[in-house]
Design a protein around this nucleic acid. Structure first.
Length: 585
RNA sequence: GGGCUCAUAGCUCAGAGGAUAGAGCAAUCGCCUUCUAAGCGAUCGGUCACAGGUUCGAAUCCUGUUGAGCCCGCCA
């Protein structure tokens, strides 16, 4: 079924050849959805662009093209408008047939991809011995949504958590803990994570100020890297404790990840440097081993190096990233590697991608893509901080969203004189609060900075999670009120389109596959959000205008089917954003 | 000094070669004897930062200017 666009595209290409000859077999008919529903459903803009090559007036070209165009199965007779737009309007019978196919399909018309890829989505990536904070929010939410979309398409997705679990930070932390809380290095949970974070900060301070401490810390890293048992044990304890704390957040957010931290690649680091050497790319400069980059210069205009081995012999993140890239290509056999990190790392990615390319490790068949996102800012437009100026803990942020959702829900329950169990209230508050945070983030174009506002994301109106959850709840309300079991509506539930709002809603429902395909390519989940918001709006307009339960048959069944299809589309679409639905709220 | 990103309605943001630039919020005004008001309709609101250029057509692409944010040798 489906691929209305593909069908029309082919028809237009045939018409181009029939009208103007074989030279135009590859001419793009410039078929796009119309900018305005008054112009129909799709428009072809090719006539204007052919005016010069053909030496004719665009409208005449359009007319000639339309004479050779056969889309009568799908469309009303094509209309030529304005300077030479060809407007196509889908026939009601065609729409109804498409709806029937969609209804019967658990995937709602979104076909699995023909050639599944092995895709790695690298996201979240918190640091061991630190708490997850607001800086991890966007990567975690956006990365999860991208993974869900690609998984739904049928790709083989590996969700990797590239946690910061290696390097100098452990040297200084272990050194410091030996002084102040040695039990933390030998006993699980001897101190809690909050204290660990505080110790980390103090360790960092000591590291920056105290040369002797720095040297001890450096030796501690060497011990750890050399596999010293005590060091190793301490490191494992610290990682384990952090890991459990991360899992609390991931459970709250319903996010699944495979941990493969920086330490995983540690044994592979020397090989990276060796192979760069063999490739003739390695240059020693100031004692550090580097690859000098093309197109990146420093303040003096000289080429910038990518340092792969520090003058003290240690490796850094560029080396780890290169090792990880090689591993993901050679061992994981990935076709596409997606890195979801903040935009500030754009240079770093461009740089190490370049080195991987020049070293011959990155074949043209593998796509690597950095998916950058902007900062989370407070309502003052500055980087989000707590009132006391601290970084906002992710845990606190999510708790506050849920608390606010609960307070709002309780107020409303009271105002409406409803009786609800504590269980109901907690569940709804949880779903609304978390969903609001996720949706607010996903609904924005990720490339720009984003202003975090509890009030806006939890608003019941507008482009928010609660608005969409409510649209879904409304459909469930109909089924309860009318004692309708949508599953039993069955295949006979033919959708008939009569009212404008029904047409508008139906056409929108049929566009899900196009949106999913688009987002899977460009990795902008906000487009899916936009689609779902518009779907909710169109449903509410239909709901406002068309009685459902009180309609006469066969209209009643038709409208019930339309409601059900809307609910299923919302549920599926939201699930691709990592957002669940509620039956009542 | 270089690089990247951004600048669209009072506010928060969509739109990334096509027709008259959209939505939400805010403001103003309507609509609950109807499955529904956590909703729907309407009004108001724009020099798409500025200046050039490419194009049949530019908010969108290119160049420059201004302003903002981020990054730039041994942190990630």
């Amino acid at each position: 079924m489906k691929s209305t666009i593909a069908y029309l595209h082919t028809a237009l290409q045939s018409a181009l050849v029939a009208a103007f000859g074989d030279d135009f077999a590859t001419t793009n008919p410039m078929l796009v959805p119309t900018s305005n529903p008054n112009f129909g459903d799709y428009q072809a803009n090719v006539a204007m662009s052919l005016a010069k090559p053909l030496g004719k007036a665009p409208r005449a070209i359009a007319e000639q093209l339309v004479q050779h165009l056969d889309v009568s199965e799908l469309c009303e007779p094509p209309q030529i408008a304005g300077p030479g737009f060809i407007n196509l309007t889908l026939k009601p019978a065609y729409l109804e047939a498409q709806l029937a196919v969609t209804q019967a399909d658990a995937r709602l018309g979104v076909a699995p991809v023909k050639e599944p890829q092995r895709v790695i989505v690298d996201f979240s990536s918190p640091n061991i011995a630190k708490e997850m904070h607001v800086g991890h929010l966007r990567s975690t939410i956006i990365g999860d949504s991208i993974a869900r979309i690609l998984e739904f398409q049928g790709h083989d997705v590996l969700r990797l958590n590239h946690v910061g679990d290696w390097g100098t930070q452990f040297g200084m932390l272990i050194t410091y803990l030996k002084e102040v809380a040695p039990e933390a290095l030998t006993t699980a949970d001897a101190i809690d994570l909050g204290d660990l974070v505080a110790f980390y900060k103090k360790a960092k301070q000591r590291f920056d100020e105290d040369a002797a401490f720095r040297e001890t810390a450096r030796l501690e890293v060497v011990k750890l890297q050399a596999g010293d048992q005590d060091s190793r044990r301490a490191w494992e304890l610290l990682c384990d404790q952090s890991r459990r704390e991360f899992q609390v957040i991931y459970d709250l957010l319903d996010i699944c990840l495979t941990e493969r931290g920086e330490s995983f690649y540690n044994p592979l680091l020397p090989g990276v440097v060796e192979d760069l050497e063999k490739a003739g790319l390695l240059v020693e400069d100031d004692g550090a081993k580097c690859v000098f980059l093309e197109g990146f210069t420093n303040k003096d205009g000289n080429p910038l190096p990518l340092i792969v081995q520090k003058s003290d012999g240690g490796y850094n993140y560029a080396t780890t990233d290169l090792a990880a890239l090689r591993y993901r290509i050679q061992q994981d056999h990935s076709d596409r590697i997606i890195y979801v990190t903040d935009a500030g790392q754009a240079n770093h990615f461009a740089q190490f991608f370049q080195v991987a390319k020049r070293a011959g490790w990155l074949p043209d068949t593998v796509e690597v893509v950095h998916v950058p996102f902007g900062l989370v800012q407070g309502e003052d437009g500055k980087k989000l901080k707590t009132r006391s100026g601290e970084t906002v803990r992710l845990r606190d942020l999510l708790d506050e969203a849920v608390d606010r959702a609960r307070a709002d829900l309780e107020t409303r329950i009271q105002a409406e004189g409803r009786q609800e169990t504590a269980e109901f209230i907690n569940h709804v508050a949880q779903v609304v609060g978390i969903s609001a945070v996720k949706y607010a983030d996903l609904s924005q174009n990720r490339t720009s900075n984003y202003i975090f506002s509890f009030d806006k994301m939890l608003a019941l109106n507008g482009n928010t999670a609660p608005y969409m959850l409510y649209a879904y709840v409304r459909v469930q309300g109909i089924s309860r009120k009318g004692q309708i079991d949508f599953e039993k509506l069955g295949a006979n539930a033919k959708i008939l389109l009569q009212e404008d709002t029904e047409f508008t809603l139906a056409k929108h429902l049929l566009q899900l596959d196009e949106i999913v395909e688009e987002v899977s390519q460009d990795l902008f989940p906000n487009k899916l959000c936009q689609y779902l918001f518009e779907l909710s709006q169109k449903f509410n307009q239909f709901y406002d205008r068309c009685p459902v339960l009180q309609a006469e048959e066969p209209l009643r069944t038709s409208r019930l089917a339309l409601c059900d299809l809307t609910a299923r589309t919302l549920k599926l679409g939201l699930s691709l954003l990592g957002i669940p639905t509620l039956e009542r709220m």
